[in-house]
Simulated assay, not measured.
Amino acid sequence: MQRVSKFFREIAREMRKVSWPRRAELTRYTITVITTVAIFAVFFAGIDLGISKLIRLILE
């Protein structure tokens, strides 16, 4: 049990050393991630639609 409590104390000590982003940085990073994911989603949806139509043309 002592090893477990020591482990969690060490975690708390290390977490205090972490450099957390400020609110403005966090907002900018979040917007960047959401925008990137949206762009990739649209891109792959377009690729998927194009390939699907191509396969339908070939099989008909």
Rank of each mutant, 00 (worst) to 15 (best):
M1N: 13
Q2S: 13
Q2V: 11
Q2M: 13
R3K: 15
R3N: 13
R3I: 13
R3M: 14
V4S: 09
V4N: 09
K6A: 14
K6F: 11
F7R: 15
F7W: 10
F8E: 11
R9M: 07
R9P: 02
E10G: 09
I11H: 12
A12Q: 09
A12F: 09
R13Y: 15
R13A: 14
R13G: 13
E14M: 04
E14W: 02
E14S: 08
M15H: 04
M15G: 04
M15T: 06
M15K: 07
R16V: 07
K17P: 07
K17S: 13
V18L: 12
V18R: 12
S19A: 11
W20T: 14
P21I: 12
A24T: 14
E25L: 03
E25A: 06
E25S: 07
L26P: 00
L26W: 05
L26I: 01
L26C: 03
T27F: 08
T27M: 13
T27I: 09
R28G: 08
Y29G: 15
Y29E: 11
T30Y: 05
T30V: 04
I31R: 12
I31Q: 08
I31L: 11
I31M: 07
T32V: 08
T32M: 07
V33T: 05
V33W: 03
I34R: 10
I34S: 11
I34K: 12
I34F: 10
T35I: 10
T36H: 14
V37L: 07
V37G: 02
V37A: 10
A38I: 10
A38S: 10
F40P: 00
F40Y: 06
A41T: 10
V42R: 06
V42P: 00
F43V: 08
F43T: 07
F44N: 05
F44S: 04
A45E: 03
G46P: 00
G46Y: 02
G46F: 01
I47E: 00
I47G: 01
D48L: 00
L49I: 06
L49D: 07
I51T: 02
I51V: 06
I51M: 01
S52I: 00
S52Y: 01
S52L: 01
K53A: 13
K53C: 05
L54M: 04
L54G: 01
R56E: 04
R56H: 01
R56L: 01
R56I: 00
I58Q: 12
I58Y: 11
L59N: 14
L59D: 14
L59R: 15
L59V: 15
E60T: 05
E60V: 02
E60S: 06
E60H: 02
